[in-house]
Design a protein around this nucleic acid. Structure first.
Lengths: 218, 218
DNA sequence: CTCTCGACTGTGGTATACCAATATGGTATC
DNA sequence: GATACCATATTGGTATACCACAGTCGAGAG
């Protein structure tokens, strides 16, 4: 799962908040920290930029900041993608696909750590996208989940939220297993709207504490 | 409109088929042709890879080939994006936005060249995405239009196709101006399905001729 | 004539030197 | 003391040298 390439290590550092949102990055400054020279560092930064994890501020690099407007737009976008994904998955998925999806839904056990819950949720939504049969939907979902990763981490801090996510994933998987496309689509939309709401409340309420940790939220 | 950066020139060369789909590219081989050294060439190739215009074949670079399965998946993906885009645009667009959109629709005049028709169509769909108010939908539409550019070029060769595209764009704009969201969404879906069908017929019927020109279609 | 093996050419990957532009900080002047 | 200006350090952008690897072509052995 862990990617020990320079790109993977930089990505992990950003997603784990080791590199704070909004933090300025210099290519030469990253050389000693990651033990690589500017050429591969630049390549990794360019790739991270295309994924929305790094940005340019003029000519300088920075870790992509957290932005409430962007989160809202991402959830709207995700609802477009994922409702269609659920519908297509219902039309196309094999029995085995759906059983694996149900297993992934049950794996996101509430007793686990926030990290496990987050990764399990990521796997669930990516598998759902995969069985939709459209690789562009899958790529778009992967991109959205990546962009939302750092904020989703906030939401999944409370055991109550993890329980709710778990139950909602199970509802989606059950509806798909029952062949009820409409219910599955509605369950997906409910899940996203609930998650969005809980998440943005977390961000808003934690904003001051976050800022105290050096994490700016626009 | 033209981008004289190295990236822009490489992109144009691919989209205009000066660099044939499937053609192998070597970083050093591009140096004399584009008058730049490997470093910026590599950067441009990596960016084009993230946009789906260049690919890697093992360690080697190649111009992204044309692939009928991919075209089908792209149109399915695009229908997901653009039906939602139309709905959101109908909810949010100002009167000025919609009038500009209608103007763009009428600009795609049937008497123009294929290139003009294609660029006008691109502008229409990008403007529609812009007034949806969601930057991620807009970026995704831009990406889809870029990936489909070379194949759309085939479809727009006949004046008859250009007429039809023009009429369909006008229908969408009219429905939006009338505030009829449902009709606009249906007109968008009709437009895409018709375009998809005409396009894939063009590709299929031209496949042999294309191959004779060195353009492989999988 | 065929097959195998080796030298060679070309590939991308990386490190690094150099350049121009810009931000910075200290100093001198008002 | 404030401000303007200049030296300097740091930045990203680019060109290039070197490396390891792979694919190819040719020569030599069977």
């Amino acid at each position: 799962m862990t990617d020990d390439s320079l790109y993977g290590r930089l990505r992990s550092a950003i997603l784990s908040l080791d590199l704070a949102p909004g933090q300025r990055l210099s290519e030469r400054g990253l050389e000693p920290e990651f033990g690589a020279s500017r050429t591969p560092i630049r390549a990794a930064l360019m790739r991270l930029e295309s994924e929305g994890l790094a940005q340019r501020d003029g000519k300088n690099w920075m870790v992509a900041p957290l932005n409430l407007d962007e989160i809202r737009a991402l959830y709207e976008y995700r609802e477009v993608l994922e409702s269609a994904t659920t519908r297509l998955a219902s039309e196309r998925a094999s029995r085995e696909d759906l059983e694996e999806l149900a297993e992934l839904a049950s794996t996101s056990d509430a007793g686990e750590t926030p990290e496990h819950s987050l990764d399990a949720g990521t796997s669930f939504h990516l598998e759902l996208a995969r069985i939709s049969g459209n690789p562009f939907l899958e790529d778009a979902m992967r991109s959205v989940l990546t962009r939302l990763y750092r904020t989703r981490w906030l939401e999944v801090q409370s055991a109550e939220s993890r329980d709710r996510v778990h139950a909602e994933h199970s509802s989606i998987a059950s509806a798909l297993l029952a062949g009820d496309s409409a219910s599955a689509e509605l369950a997906t939309i409910d899940h996203l709207r609930g998650t969005d709401e809980r998440l943005r409340q977390s961000v808003a309420s934690d904003r001051l504490r976050l800022r105290a940790s050096g994490i700016a939220v626009d």
